[in-house]
Write a protein that binds this DNA or RNA. Sequence first.
DNA 1: TCACGTCAAGCAGAT
DNA 2: ATCTGCTTGACGTGA
Length: 299
Amino acid sequence: MKIGYPCINLSLECRSSHTFRLKNYSKEKLKKTVKSNLKCLLETLKYNINHKILFFRITSDLVPFASHQIMDFNWKKHFSKEFSEIGNFIKKKNIRITMHPGQYTVLNSNNEGVYKRSLEELIYHIDVLDLMKLDKSCKVQLHVGGVYGEKENSLNRFIERYHSLSNNIKERLVIENDDKSYNLKDCLQIYRETQIPIIFDVYHHMCNNSGESIEEAFQLISHTWEKEDGIPIIHYSSEHPHKGKPSHSEHIDLKDFAEFIQKTNIFDYDLMLEIKDKEQSALRVIKILENDPRLYAMI
DNA sequence: TCACGTCAAGCAGAT
DNA sequence: ATCTGCTTGACGTGA
């Protein structure tokens, strides 16, 4: 099991997600920003290795406006050496990487323009992983998308759009159950038509499910990951849907986490911790898992 | 130096 | 109709 966190390391000074306003766009500004983002990304990955964190989500802001029509710079060519260097480090250290396009990327949109821009954004994310020559266990994850008052049609539109994607995208794309629209059952319906692997988000499942227990859910999604996809990816965060606003919590609740681990320890999976304190929760979890599994009961 | 309005982009659900 | 959350901030103008 690899433990990971998303995008930003709060212990480091640097950020790999620096961006700028669209109206300030220039090739020079882009070059400078991407150079600094890539430098910080490598620094972050080195921090992770020094702290035994082997799973990481790379920020979508790595190359600002990469899929925007304003982009007039061949960043892939210009930074190929840097991407290759980072990719070599990732492979050498056996790190697993994911990326997660933002909420504006809606593959099943009923608006042609939104669909087209989403496709461009998806291609950008795939390009980053391809430039680093990472294997197919490194994934780009999406939610299924909008419902538009007609769920079955919208779900089928996702399936159609998926089938029309090129192979290099299909090999990396995975879907995740969300907290409002498309739950585990819906994702499994899509899987049956597409064989797309499913990332299971434990917290989203608590918000939106069809009665499956965590154990049943793990069983169901485990089969959606083929050998070349790597072991299943699970997302975990600490807050319960009922108390207060449903949002990701500040720190990890170790008692809750221990229960979760006990329930799921017969499965092999990599775990992305979506907690606000980022790497701090990952460090705690790694320490606990390393020291003594019997500690679970004592937390 | 700091507060705060704004930033490329979509959708759903609450107010 | 407008605001908020999403993954949960950063930019940059104006005081």
